[in-house]
Design a protein around this nucleic acid. Structure first.
Lengths: 252, 252
DNA sequence: TAACCTATCTTGTATATACAAGATAAACTT
DNA sequence: AAGTTTATCTTGTATATACAAGATAGGTTA
């Protein structure tokens, strides 16, 4: 080992500054910083819990929680009786570039157009309040939009927006798809997830998409966060014959 | 609410039996059991920490850890000052990771079983030869497998394997899903891509999946490489009602 | 009526203490 | 020399206690 444990700690302790975040989160952040900067290499051993306790002046349970969560996240590897080690970096990436249907259509060299079916400003239901982490009396926007590729409907977008974070959402130009840029401006997305499934469209959805009743659709439910606050949820519905998802992983 | 909190607890406390597993893990298991059995429905409120403490005779920190981990796993949703609720079910599978349906099913605590419908060793067709980068007179395996989750069919796997790279593919135990481990051993995947779409199943596929003719399916076509050589292609077909894909991007 | 407290519930975090259990190296025995 | 024990390090879990902070119902006041 080229570096002594004590020298590893010196710099670590500097990283835990005063901040509103919980202590365990700051400990995690400090450790991640060491790893991301390359200072702590893969497979290298990190200081033991008791060493961190002494160096950082926090309780062992707090250090333990930080290390345990980082282990759950695959950042660290722990072995009882032995120690804690930096895990090998895992290959990540897939399907993440699918953010904006308008850009995708433009990339294919086709014409994009959007049609606003309905937008209402209302109070969040219990379910929406839980999803968006707002109180039930907070206001939200609920919008329904149809996207066209060369005048052929390709996607229905049902979107719920946290009105506290994006108060002027309804004032944007929906035809030109300004809504996406607006959301990115007021609450830039730092995290997101999507759920993909195959469903049958309702009669009204068939009408909007101009498809037969027996055509299966790809449904994407997406939630995007900005600094731990849920900004918006969306349900995207596309005919199986006109829309596919592509993903690539590994390699270069 | 149709059920009193105390009656929810009676049955919960019975579930934490003596076992070598840690207490927090048994608490998690007991809660998952309630949810999986349908006894605790989605969006329904679950007993508070202090109620569980009284009912189960464990400390609050132990209950807290169980609830916190289930929240991290997306099983529960917690809101400070309000309570803990059952999240909507996620039978999802990770979109960004290498796909192994057996592991995913095991991770959900369910039983996996596979049934080999057919496997043939033949020469590659023109299309397969192109896809797999072999000559048309090279041999391939073509297998059809049905995967079951708790004896319910969840996926049809149509796989084409490059026999030059994986000569003993047909000698593996398909019921135990040794095939995945075998492929990873002889030709560890370094790169892959998938195409996701919604399709209608054929009559024969409906029979194998035990679904109605009008049920949409999620189809994943996947190709995986090992050092620029295409090892295998797969077409995975799952009923939309039983299978979802999950993806996460950004964040930590 | 409307606004404002307040008691009391909830979850969230931090700590000290304690013991269990895996791993390992040094000391000890045979 | 080979095996065995032991001391001591590590992580893993469980508990009691404490306080912070969000949410809400009910009462009080203007």
């Amino acid at each position: 080992m080229t570096e002594t444990t004590s020298s590893m700690m010196n710099k670590l302790s500097q990283s835990i500054e005063d901040s509103p975040a919980p202590i365990y989160a700051r400990v995690k952040q400090a450790i991640c910083l060491k790893i991301n900067s390359g200072e702590w290499q893969a497979n290298q051993r990190v200081p033991s819990e008791s060493e961190m306790v002494k160096a950082l002046g926090v309780s062992r349970m707090t250090v333990n929680r930080a290390l345990r969560e980082l282990t759950d996240e695959g950042i660290l590897i722990r072995q009882q009786g032995v120690g804690t080690f930096v895990a090998k970096k895992k290959t990540h990436s897939a399907l993440s570039e699918i953010h904006n249907i308008a850009d995708e259509i433009a990339q294919r060299g086709n014409q994009h157009r959007a049609e606003l079916i309905e937008i209402i400003r209302t109070n969040a239901s219990m379910e929406e309040a839980i999803n968006l982490s707002v109180r039930t009396n907070h206001t939200i926007f609920r919008a329904t939009i149809v996207h066209f590729e060369n005048d052929l409907p390709i996607q229905i977008e049902e979107r719920v927006v946290n009105a506290t974070l994006a108060p002027d959402y309804d004032k944007q130009d929906f035809q030109q798809n300004e809504t996406y840029d607006y959301l990115m401006k007021v609450a830039p997305m730092t995290e997101g997830e999507h759920l993909v499934e195959a469903v049958m469209p309702s009669a009204n959805e068939c009408r909007l998409l101009q498809i037969q009743a027996n055509e299966p659709c790809l449904q994407i439910k997406r939630r995007t966060w900005c600094d731990d606050q849920l900004v918006t949820t969306a349900r995207l519905l596309s005919p199986g014959s006109r829309f596919q998802l592509f993903g690539h992983f590994g390699g270069k």
